[in-house]
Simulated assay, not measured.
Amino acid sequence: MESAIKTVVQQFLSSARGKENLGAKNFQKLVQSQLGNIMSDTDSSSAVKDMMRGLDDNQDGKVSFQEYLNLVGYVANAWSERKTGTQNSAAN
């Protein structure tokens, strides 16, 4: 698990290119390169923009590390449900 956490952090930092947040272009590149195999529509720029808007809690047009972690958590939960065939009863 330690390796997975390091990877999540390193991918964000690498994609942010020394900044505290991901702009639209860097967010799209991150999603396409790192999540394309487990998420649909990552090749659609409009779908990725919609995803970014949904994550952007403070509406600053960027994705912070915390907002990025919300995406990671959502994807991990969806992947777990897919693999186990269960759904979170709180989500229903």
Score class of each variant (00 low, 15 high):
72 V>P: 03
13 L>C: 08
36 G>L: 01
65 F>E: 00
73 G>C: 14
36 G>W: 02
47 A>T: 00
60 D>H: 09
60 D>I: 02
43 D>F: 06
17 R>G: 08
82 R>W: 10
17 R>L: 08
38 I>G: 03
35 L>H: 08
42 T>M: 04
91 A>W: 00
90 A>E: 10
66 Q>H: 14
32 Q>H: 13
36 G>V: 00
15 S>K: 05
28 Q>M: 13
17 R>Q: 15
33 S>I: 02
92 N>R: 12
16 A>S: 06
79 W>H: 15
12 F>I: 07
42 T>C: 08
69 L>G: 02
19 K>Y: 01
77 N>C: 11
53 R>M: 07
44 S>H: 06
40 S>A: 13
66 Q>Y: 09
16 A>P: 01
76 A>P: 04
11 Q>N: 14
14 S>C: 08
50 D>A: 15
84 T>F: 10
50 D>S: 11
78 A>R: 14
19 K>V: 03
82 R>Y: 12
48 V>Y: 01
20 E>P: 05
49 K>I: 07
49 K>T: 15
51 M>Y: 06
24 A>G: 12
72 V>Q: 04
44 S>W: 04
16 A>I: 00
10 Q>N: 04
56 D>I: 00
54 G>D: 06
25 K>S: 15
18 G>C: 09
72 V>T: 03
80 S>W: 12
53 R>Y: 12
35 L>M: 07
27 F>P: 02
84 T>R: 15
56 D>M: 06
50 D>R: 14
79 W>D: 13
81 E>C: 07
51 M>G: 00
